[in-house]
Nucleic acid binder design. Structure first.
Length: 268
DNA sequence: CGGTAGACCTGACCGC
DNA sequence: TGCGGTCAGGTCTACC
């Protein structure tokens, strides 16, 4: 489900709600892909951050809690008063963080691909590429990273070891804005195109964060509300509809097995 | 190493 | 109403 903007939105929501709170219990109801920790409780979350699509919560007890939502994971915060009006989230709840003030944070995950790992501080996160919103992600970086690469540009953008956080939606949206076909060989971009792509990625990710991410199905903010950026999608999910730039119908193809939407006229 | 297909899961949706 | 096929914001492994 979530890509960088969705994960960033969740992280910002978590910061306001759980930072400094005392965790008194961590319970698991579906242990698949969730590590069974020996925690020294209570503990406090002293920071909540994001690396690529990972949520990283540091504690005051020398451990970090690393959450990856994969396709359908959600983190939903309930204070004592409201309970997110839980419909059927109980059915897919997989773990729960219980805080001293009675509030809880639920990990809900229909497809059960999501992961929660408690790591000692010295244990490393998976190796990840550059953050696309960092200053180091620039034309020089992209030209060097793509040099001699014969794979499709879209696949390069989805490679988390190269750039961390871009997924299927924002790859398509960025390529449309940069006027580059998803199947172009990554190594074939010239400097002008690389510059357009870098600018497009940053612009789209920033705007998507501003709108709280894209909700197509499962993704929700920690308060249960939906994101708004799906209203701004230019190509993703718009097969057969008119390109906002040139009016030609948006096409859908498979690239690396993933649905890819683009305009065959204005993306070169 | 690159490229690809399949695996991991559940549910929604579509056509018959 | 039911059945089968297809699809889904992600990533990992096996195999050519």
């Amino acid at each position: 489900m979530p890509e960088l903007p969705e994960v960033e939105t969740i992280v910002r929501g978590l910061r306001r709600r759980v930072l400094g709170k005392k965790l008194r219990r961590f319970s698991i109801s579906d242990k698949k892909r969730i590590s069974k920790p020996r925690l020294s409780l209570p503990l406090s979350f002293v920071s909540v951050g994001r690396r690529g699509k990972y949520i990283v919560c540091e504690t005051d007890k020398g451990m970090r809690c690393i959450v990856h939502l994969r396709m359908t994971g959600e983190l939903l915060f309930d204070d004592q008063a409201s309970n997110n009006n839980g419909k059927d989230i109980g059915k897919h709840e997989r773990a729960r963080f219980h805080f001293h003030d009675g509030s809880i944070l639920r990990f809900v995950d229909v497809r059960r691909f999501g992961t929660i790992n408690w790591l000692k501080n010295k244990e490393l996160l998976p190796r990840l590429g550059i953050e696309p919103l960092s200053s180091g992600f620039n034309v020089a970086f992209l030209m060097a990273a793509f040099k001699n690469s014969s794979r499709a540009i879209k696949l390069a953008l989805l490679d988390q070891h190269l750039v961390a956080g871009i997924g299927n939606i924002y790859a398509d949206e960025s390529l449309w804005l940069a006027k580059i076909k998803p199947l172009r060989k990554a190594g074939s971009l010239n400097k002008t195109e690389a510059a357009r792509l870098v600018a497009a990625i940053k612009k789209i990710l920033r705007e998507a964060i501003k709108q709280g991410g894209s909700t197509l199905r499962d993704y929700k903010r920690v308060d249960g509300s939906s994101g708004g950026y799906q209203e701004s999608h230019t190509v993703y999910g718009r097969e057969g509809e008119k390109c906002f730039r040139c009016g030609v119908k948006i096409k859908r193809i498979k690239v690396g097995g993933r649905s890819s939407f683009f305009c065959s006229k204005c993306q070169k």
